[in-house]
Design a protein around this nucleic acid. Structure first.
Length: 609
RNA sequence: GCGCCCGUAGCUCAGUGGAUAGAGCAGUGGACUUCGAAUCCAAAGGUCGCAAGUUCGAAUCUUGCCGGGCGCGCCA
């Protein structure tokens, strides 16, 4: 019991010290004047209030030390996320990746870190080749035809990719043709090369547009094609050989390959270079990871790819371009990739260790998460014809190859449609463009919260009804809470001419808590303010565990608390001036923390809804 | 076979060795002439997969078992 009390006191202290100047000894004043309040949990607010009455002036500083615990630890952090193969539309699985990665970036920036966000583009992989094959062999289309294709190109390729996959499965002899296309793309020969480039670039632009709907942006797009042209792998290969991180298998099942022995099992080995001399996926990944840390001794060139809000998004190129920006050379790297890649990510890190880059190996973080799957109900809604075997299962994996999945833009469209209908019910008089803006914000908020509320190791079995819900533990609930708060301040300005920024703690020596405030309200106030003050702690905890469901849950619980307060205590109608001022200060403090939490989750805040 | 993950209310999920295990959804009953009801209040709903162990104390840590998922390519 003693240790429990100590822990409790420490926790309370940790939460309060950022906001209010209390010493842990103040919390230690255990005996209460009234034996009825012998419970520590009940007395601490009173103890604090007492302390604060002695030094109310200090409360004015409450906002300043809030971020004192947020200090940067790294020189520069690279986050790699999204990484969608540029051969089809983005789907809900990609959305989970991008939402997690973007939230990590926002939280690290909040902490004060220098963050660089990279979205790796595999523009020469077999997935793009499949679509090129589809255009050439199945549709007999030229580059000119592609340029004239109207509408959503990523959607078009989604269907074509699925059709091509079926075709290639049924025609094994077509593999020779496919292999020839791969070769020509590698050698930069047209029309194959031009087609692959057109497809990948146009689809990357589609992905960027989709992510932009969610407020997700990037700093740089490193391309696989550039890595090939600039011979990153060859440089890494020399390093690996020189430091004996890999060795040539003269016999055995991997005869003729360059392999790496696995740390966990000396008997097993992973092929890095095939017997035909080509490099595997893991090999290329090791080279890329080395580049991120500035250990490769080679670099990309860059050219502008797009402008977003006055910020330039750069793409890698092998053509020397003087005066371009510099990327890479991070001290820590987060790779946001789903849990199925855990084994390969482990090998990449082992590659760094084998090269004696232990520091960088320790700072290579695989931010893993479970996949998004589809419920049988969702399958039905998508009109997917499941096989007998698939019908037996309780969920199905999203599969681009099968063309099975909920496309990101489709889901966002449906969320927007529903939001617009709700707005129409509540605020029919608003201008159409404003309704559209609000609908977009609500759709984005609903989706981002949905992707964040699950723990990362939890498999999301996607269900439309659940994702389209705007009530209860959802993004719109959080948005609505803050919108109502803002509306109080808007009315305050209209009625009393008082601006929100004028709501500050008393500076004339008066107590923060007005005299005669009820015990119930005092307790509710402290409950709210202590919760609001733990934002920093929650952000740090979320980052440390890469568990942003903590942040989501924190914001939701704070909203719940606030909504309870909102219903109980009128603000603008309160006649006692001191009580009114106190309540205004309470809700302003809460609102600031809430707005911060929403911004960290990338949930936009409409003015009305 | 080996490795990783999951199993908590009807459903979807939180839960940092600590107090009577919590939310949302669905269902039940209630609250809009008030700062916005996308809200709030109330009741109801649990062998925390099973078993043993560690501990003053286990949903949480360890081991075994059961059930489900994902990995373990000279694919990417």
């Amino acid at each position: 019991m003693i240790s429990f009390k100590t822990r409790l006191k420490e926790t309370i202290y940790e939460r309060l010290k950022g906001v209010y100047p209390v010493a842990i000894e103040d919390l230690d004043m255990a005996p209460t004047p009234d034996p009825k309040m012998g419970d520590l949990a009940l007395t601490f607010p009173f103890q604090l209030a007492k302390t604060l009455k002695k030094a109310p002036r200090a409360i004015a500083q409450e906002a300043a030390p809030l971020r004192s615990s947020l200090v940067p630890e790294e020189d520069k952090i690279i986050i790699e996320h999204t990484n969608i193969n540029p051969n089809k539309a983005a789907h809900i699985g990609h959305l989970r990746n991008a939402c997690l990665g973007d939230t990590l970036a926002r939280c690290l920036r909040f902490k004060g870190e220098k963050v660089e966000v990279q979205n790796y583009i595999d523009d020469t992989g077999v997935q793009v080749v499949d679509v090129v094959f589809g255009f050439m062999e199945l549709e007999k289309k030229t580059l000119d035809d592609l340029e004239k294709l109207p509408g959503k190109f990523d959607y078009y390729c989604w269907d074509l990719y699925a059709r091509t996959s079926v075709y290639l499965g049924e025609h094994p002899e077509a593999q020779t043709k496919k292999a020839a296309i791969i070769k020509k793309i590698e050698n930069g020969q047209d029309p194959e090369y031009a087609l692959s480039r057109y497809v990948s670039r146009r689809i990357v632009r589609a992905h960027l547009a989709t992510m932009r709907r969610l407020g997700i942006a990037y700093d740089v797009l490193p391309c696989e094609s550039t890595i090939l042209h600039l011979k990153f792998w060859e440089k890494a290969f020399d390093l690996l050989k020189e430091r004996q991180a890999i060795y040539f298998a003269a016999q055995g099942e991997n005869k003729g390959c360059w392999v790496m022995r696995l740390e966990e099992d000396e008997e097993r080995e992973k092929v890095i270079v095939r017997s035909d001399g080509t490099v595997t996926y893991v090999g290329k990944d090791i080279a890329y990871q080395l580049w991120k840390f500035g250990l490769l001794g080679r670099d990309f060139y860059y050219e502008p790819f797009a402008e977003e809000d006055g910020r330039t998004l750069w793409i890698s190129t092998s053509t020397p371009t003087p005066g371009g920006p510099g990327f890479g050379e991070a001290s820590k790297v987060y790779n946001v990739i789903d849990t199925r890649q855990s084994y390969l990510q482990k090998i990449v890190v082992q590659g760094l260790r084998s090269l004696k880059y232990d520091t960088q190996a320790a700072k290579s973080v695989h931010f893993s998460y479970e996949m998004v799957a589809l419920s049988p109900k969702s399958l039905k809604e998508l009109g997917y014809a499941a096989s007998e075997e698939e019908k037996e299962r309780s969920f199905l994996e999203v599969s681009g190859r099968k063309g099975l999945g909920v496309k990101a833009d489709d889901l966002l469209d449906r969320l927007e449609d529903k939001a617009r209908a709700e707005i129409e019910k509540r605020n029919p008089g608003l201008p159409t463009d404003e309704k559209q803006r609000i609908a977009r914000d609500i759709a984005s908020g609903a989706l981002r919260y949905f992707m964040l509320k699950f723990a990362r190791n939890s498999l999301i079995i996607f269900d439309f009804d659940e994702a389209l819900n705007f009530e209860g533990e959802t993004g719109p609930y959080l948005q609505y809470t803050v919108v109502r708060l803002n509306s109080i301040f808007r009315k305050l300005k209209e009625r009393d001419g008082v601006a929100e920024s004028d709501i500050v703690p008393p500076t004339d020596g008066r107590a923060l808590l007005p005299p005669g405030l009820s015990e119930k309200e005092t307790a509710d106030f402290w409950g709210l303010i202590v919760a609001a003050a733990s934002l920093d702690e929650e952000v740090l905890r979320s980052v440390a565990g890469l568990e942003f469901s903590h942040l989501a849950k924190f914001a939701f619980l704070l909203c719940q608390k606030f909504n309870g307060y909102y219903h109980k205590y009128p603000v603008l109608a309160e006649e006692n001036k001191e009580v009114k001022a106190f309540r205004l200060l309470t809700i302003r403090t809460t609102k600031e923390q809430l707005q911060c939490a929403l911004a960290l989750m990338g949930i936009p805040l409409p003015e009305r809804m």
